[in-house]
Amino acid sequence: MTHADDPARGMIGRRQLFALGAAGALGAAARHDGMVGGTSERIAGTLPWADGQADAPDDAIRAGTAFLTTAERAFVTAAADRLIPPDPTGPSASQADVPDFIDRQLAGGFGHGEHYYLAGPWAKGLPSQGYQSRLTPAAYYRAAIAAVADHVGREHGGKAFADLAPTDQDAVLKALEAGKVDLGQVDAKQFFAMFLQNVKEGYFSDPLYGGNRDMAAWKMIGFPGAHYDYSEWVTRHGEPVPLAPVGLTGRPGWRKA
C-alpha cells in the first residue's frame, strides 16, 4: 500500500503557498478535512482507482507516539476531568482516554501545525480569524501548561494543578476561560478554548484516534458510529436505528470467539 508515499497528502510548503498566490491557495484541494495539502486534480474519463489502494486514515494517528511530559500529562488529565467529570450518564474524559488522544494529536500533524499558516506578520487577530500564534499547537500547549503551572504555584504555595482540590481547579480554569490570567506569550482565553475543543474531540472522535474508549461517548448519545451510509434507513422516519456502534477499527462483534 502506498498511501503514505502519496505526495498529494504531504504539506504544501509556505514558500510554495506564497508562490501560488491567494487564488492558488484557495484552489488547493483539501484532501482531508482540516488539511490543506496537494494540488487540485482534474478527473476525466473514468474514476481514479488503483489496485490495493484506499483513502485510509493517515499514519500519523498510529499509536505509540507521544509528546507530553509526565507533568504536562498530569495537567491535561486533571483539567480534562474537570471539563468532563464522571457521572452516571458516561465516563470522565480520562476514563475515555482523552489525554491519550490529545497526546497523540500533539505528536502528529495537528501538533506540528501542518494545517496552519504560522509565518509572520503576527498581528493580533480577531476572534473570527481563528488560531493566531507563531507557535505550533504543540509548542503552544507546552508554553501554556508551563505558564499555568507557574501561575498555580504562585497562587497555591507551590502546588501543581493536579494536586489542587476540584473547586480550586475549577477556579483556575474559569480564570483562564475569562482571560484573567497572564500566560506570557500565550493568550489564556484562546488556550482554554482550544483545550476545551480538543477535550470534546477526544471524547467523541473515532476510537482509532486514541480517545472515546469502547465508543462509550457514542453509546451515551446513541450514535451508531462510522457506517459508510444509511441508504437502507433513509425512508424509515422516526424509527430507532438498532445498529451497534462501530468505529473505523470495527467493534467487539467482529472479533468475538
Binding site: M1, T46, L47, G52, A54, G250, R255
Partner: peptide, 21 residues
C-alpha cells in the same frame, strides 16, 4: 457503460482473520 464502478481495498481496515470470516 463507460463509468467504471469500483470497490475499494479493505487491506488497511480488515485483519487477516476478519477478511477470512
Amino acid at each position: 457503460r463507460p463509468t467504471a464502478t469500483t470497490m475499494p481495498s479493505f487491506a488497511w481496515k480488515l485483519t487477516d482473520g476478519e477478511v477470512a470470516d
